[in-house]
Amino acid sequence: MADRLLKFSSSPHVKSPKTTRQIMIHVCIALMPAVIMGIVLFGGMAALILSLSLVSAVASEFVYLLICKKSFRQIAREFDFTSCVTGLLVGMSIGVNYPWYAPIFGSVFAIIVVKMIFGGTGKNLVNPAVTGRIFIFMSFQAMVGAWVIPNINSITGGQINSGATILGGLLDAKNPTFPTLSNWDLLLGTGLAGCIGETCKLALILGGIYLAVLGIINIGYPVIYVAVTGLFTVALNGFNFGYFLPAILSGGLMLGAIFMATDYTTTPNTTLGNIIYFVMLGLITAGLRQATHMEVVSFAILFMNLFVPLIDKFVLPNPFGYKKIKKAKGAK
């Protein structure tokens, strides 16, 4: 007994039960309200698109790792559900009138090109889901045209069926068309044309609250992003606060702010860095929206993702007791 070799490792010898896989499963659960609302609003085609993007994301990760000569058992053991999140987000960020193969292209691109080639989970430079969405948008938007109107009519009776987002009409400086939808419609996604997962903001907010309660995301950061976007839109339109709610409740802002911009890998590592990142995101989103009248959240996130290494290089915390040294030097 005394000579038997035991498990040996560096301290600490107790660890919290939290794992990457658990975090990602929680993110998947947090996406469920929006997924369900998407299927309710857009019907069977939404379910098909979501399942195709999910399955192709997971499958492409497995195929890539199999090509890398990992055994199937090992891949299954190390599978951490990040590709599930990516797959779901890709599916959620496109409309139901896209061809059925569009989500497959998007998911495979997101997983293989954006994530796996850079080294897998945690090594990607930019958010895979955002890039996948942009890939689909660039490739298929011309083919598709306008967004599809959901099955459920709006509470107020109006419908927006032209243009990408409600904001497009609102921000058109020459002849602003005020929407026939109320802010309640924007919140619930009723009568609002758009992507599968983006229309029902309430479901997304619920998911965000779930993640915040579990401590997976800091709810302050998405709030900063959304608030800065809203306020900057208000400022750009002559401080007309009527723009605030439509600005924050339309387009992909909620999905982007809660689920895409908060992705661990592509956010800065310090509190100050994060604040800079999310404020910049808000400014870029509002500014680009004003300039292009298009939905730009994903472009803003992609753009800021590339700034993260720079922010991390310059924003560093002072070690405990560090400030005192500076003072002592100054005193001398």
Binding site: A2, F8, S11, P12
Partner: peptide, 9 residues
Amino acid sequence: PMMGKALLN
């Protein structure tokens, strides 16, 4: 458990 040393045997 946080800072102690694991025993080889």
